[in-house]
Simulated assay, not measured.
Amino acid sequence: MRKTKILAWTDDWGKSYCQEEKVLEEVFREELVDIFHIGSTSIPTIGYAKPIIDILIVVKDIENVDLYNNEMLELGYEPKGENGIAGRRYFQKGKDNRTHHLHIFQVESEHIKNHLDFKEYLIKNTEEAKKYGELKINLAKQFPNEHHKYQNGKQQFVNELADKAKEWSSERRFPC
């Protein structure tokens, strides 16, 4: 059973990302366009997060990512296909004790911008980030052994943040 563990934000998550980035750049070098640290572990202002490093990779051709599944398995990543999001390739590392989530999209996918805008919005809007961190702590205390209830409990707030990030991003690009 997967437990929900929330920890205080630490610089160690950035270091872990950097180590993994080098490995993944080597694996996907023929397809790689860009790579980013995303998710709560990339946002110091959030204060708290699950200790799982989320990584976003942008590739030239999403179909070619499947050719790397065996190499990713050797690195401990479990290929999950689209895993509910069309046009994505998703990998998990660490089984029930996850350490990394890898989200791969083809260049120009709207999901890339959405993830990056969400991150930037929370970095710039510290009060929103803190609310999100506090929600994570409260839900983890409430549902320590029911990860799906933890996820469901934060979904509406995440959706609201995503909408705010999208609006914030469009206002930044086209100020009046």
Rank of each mutant, 00 (worst) to 15 (best):
E20S: 07
A162D: 07
L135Q: 03
E31F: 00
G39K: 01
K15G: 08
K119I: 03
G84L: 11
K131M: 05
K5G: 04
R89C: 15
K50T: 02
K119M: 03
N64C: 07
N70F: 02
S40T: 08
E167G: 06
E31S: 07
F105V: 07
K113H: 08
V33Q: 05
V23G: 00
I53S: 03
A162S: 14
D163I: 11
E26G: 12
K50C: 06
P175K: 15
D96L: 10
A49W: 00
L56R: 01
F174S: 06
K95Y: 14
S109C: 06
K3C: 05
L32K: 08
L32E: 09
W9C: 04
K154D: 08
V58F: 02
E171L: 14
I35Y: 01
N125W: 12
E30Y: 10
L73E: 15
G133L: 00
Q156M: 09
S170P: 03
F143C: 00
N114P: 02
L73W: 08
V65N: 11
G39D: 01
R173S: 14
L122M: 14
V158D: 06
K164G: 02
E167A: 14
Y48S: 05
A86M: 06
L56F: 13
N64F: 09
H101Q: 06
R172S: 10
W168K: 12
I38L: 10
Q92I: 02
G94T: 14
E31V: 09
K95H: 14
L139Y: 14
I123P: 01
E63Y: 03
A8H: 00
S109N: 14
K119T: 10
K154V: 06
